[in-house]
Design a protein around this nucleic acid. Structure first.
Length: 288
DNA sequence: ATGTGACCCTGGATGC
DNA sequence: TGCATCCAGGGTCACA
């Protein structure tokens, strides 16, 4: 499933191919993903120009805002108005966006096509945990976005900040890292990998992780995310970037999905446990 | 406020 | 082969 790197890779692919391009039409084939797809969305999109492909956490925000040019008239009425509109896309667990050759017949789980001339952006999501919404007005004010935590790749994400945010929390550090109200974009796989890199037991109560250890954890998270973005992003076996190229980050997991296999650092068998309904993997010797 | 578990939906892997 | 069961990358919500 897409974690932050996959979403960022997708965002870059979209930006590169269709920023500044006009959307001729949208074809929506599914009434609802996680939420109902708003009626009139296709009509709303047609004719708009993609100003910018943005990302907040794992949410893609495609900015289709446009200046409404006032009808020719007196200067005094020349008040430029903006019609703010963003297409929000979340890929959920199994979603992906890819450019397809125009005319490629849709398959079972291809829910939407966004046609930018000869560039057709297709949304596929077998499990339909994703989202497709139209946000009028300030996208950051939308409830889904407003409550999001800090961006892990921002300068503000520091060990000191994290220590404050985790102060007094008894919740284990691993599910804490995955709480998008705290830090966005760190999913199950990268949480596990980052905690391994930092040598922290995923069961440690979040509020009891020392500043010194947070000083290893923060850069571990950032390095892990950046490396995954650089690698083209892949946590899904079949993840493809927007151009269809295979990412290869999956080949570098050190603990995730390696239960029983030897730790790459010390050789101890990697242990699998469950935390908050999710599987966790860690090295009992290297992570304490 | 904080923590826990159920749930959304589909498909793949595994076991009988 | 067929069928049941379990598991999966995320996120929201109800409830203790």
């Amino acid at each position: 499933m897409p974690e932050l790197p996959e979403v960022e890779v997708t965002r870059r692919g979209i930006a590169q191919r269709v920023e500044g391009a006009r959307i001729d039409r949208a074809v929506l084939r599914t009434p609802a993903l996680r939420y109902p797809i708003p009626a009139g969305l296709a009509r709303n999109l047609a004719g708009r120009t993609l100003v910018e492909a943005k990302r907040r956490g794992k949410y893609l925000l495609l900015d289709f805002s446009s200046a409404i040019t006032p009808a020719s008239g007196h200067e005094s009425s020349l008040k430029l108005r903006f019609d703010n509109g963003h297409l929000l896309i979340h890929l959920g667990m199994s979603g992906s966006l890819r450019f397809v050759v125009p005319g490629t017949p849709p398959e079972k789980h291809d829910h939407a096509d966004f046609v930018f001339g000869k560039q057709v952006l297709r949304l596929t999501d077998p499990r339909r945990f994703g989202a497709l919404l139209w946000l009028a007005g300030d996208p950051l004010a939308h409830p889904l976005i407003a409550k999001l935590g800090i961006e892990p790749l921002s300068r503000a994400f520091t060990p000191g900040w994290l220590q404050q945010a985790l102060k007094g929390r008894s919740l284990a550090i691993k599910p804490a890292l995955m709480d998008s109200g705290l830090v966005v974009g760190v999913g199950n796989i990268y949480a596990a990998e980052s905690l391994f890199d930092a040598g922290i037991d995923p069961r440690t109560p979040a509020g009891r992780v020392s500043l010194k250890r947070l000083g290893r954890l923060v850069p571990a998270i950032q390095t892990t995310l950046r490396a995954a973005i650089r690698a083209g992003g892949s946590t899904l076996r079949d993840f493809r970037g927007t151009d269809g190229g295979m990412g290869d980050f999956q080949t570098r997991h050190k603990v995730y999905d390696r239960a029983g296999e030897p730790c790459l650092n010390c050789g101890s068998p990697i242990r699998a446990i469950r935390q908050g309904q999710r599987s966790s993997f860690y090295c009992p010797r290297c992570q304490r």
